[in-house]
């Protein structure tokens, strides 16, 4: 059943993808084929495979226990927050917080997680910025 729903979603994706290709404006300065046919080929391949999935689905997958979903949501949300906060707050602060959160989810005590995260973050920050010349955000709020 899951595969059927997934198949329908993928079919919609393929249709949308093909439709978007048909709306591309092509100028005169193009090759004989242009930018549209390759996406059409892909949309056909994916669409037909999705149809097959709808007609011949695999057995349902084993989904995680219901209480895992909030955890997964929390982790994904924290990753999004990380992307927005890493430049203003800096690599060290955001990465320490993110690592601490994950450590706790993997069963560490809060002081273990915090210490481990801080030590590791500081170590890689200086290894990469000072040692290897990679630029990482220092944090705008710190000047």
């Amino acid at each position: 059943m899951t595969d059927r729903i997934v198949g329908i979603l993928i079919l919609l994706l393929a249709l949308g993808y093909g439709l978007e290709a048909s709306r591309m404006q092509v100028g005169f300065l193009s090759d004989p084929l242009g930018p549209r046919p390759f996406p059409y080929i892909i949309a056909t391949l994916v669409g037909l495979s999705a149809l097959w999935l709808i007609f011949k689905p695999d057995p349902n997958p084993t989904w995680p226990a219901p209480r895992f979903w909030p955890v997964l949501g929390l982790v994904l949300l924290s990753l999004v927050a990380y992307a927005y906060l890493v430049v203003p707050l800096g690599f060290i602060l955001t990465t320490t917080l993110e690592m601490t959160l994950l450590s706790l989810l993997f069963g560490a005590r809060w002081w273990q997680g915090l210490l481990g995260a801080l030590a590791f973050t500081l170590a890689v920050y200086f290894l990469f910025t000072e040692g290897l010349g990679v630029t990482l955000p220092a944090g705008r709020i710190f000047g």
Binding site: V87, M99, T100, L102, G107, A108, F120, V124, F128
Partner: peptide, 25 residues
């Protein structure tokens, strides 16, 4: 322990992704 190792892998992932274009997007 896993509680240290796996978050550490994620931290390295952040550096790897950020270093590609220096872009948080």
């Amino acid at each position: 322990p896993a509680w240290f190792l796996i978050p550490a892998v994620l931290a390295i992932s952040f550096i790897g992704v950020y270093a590609v274009n220096n872009n948080p997007f």
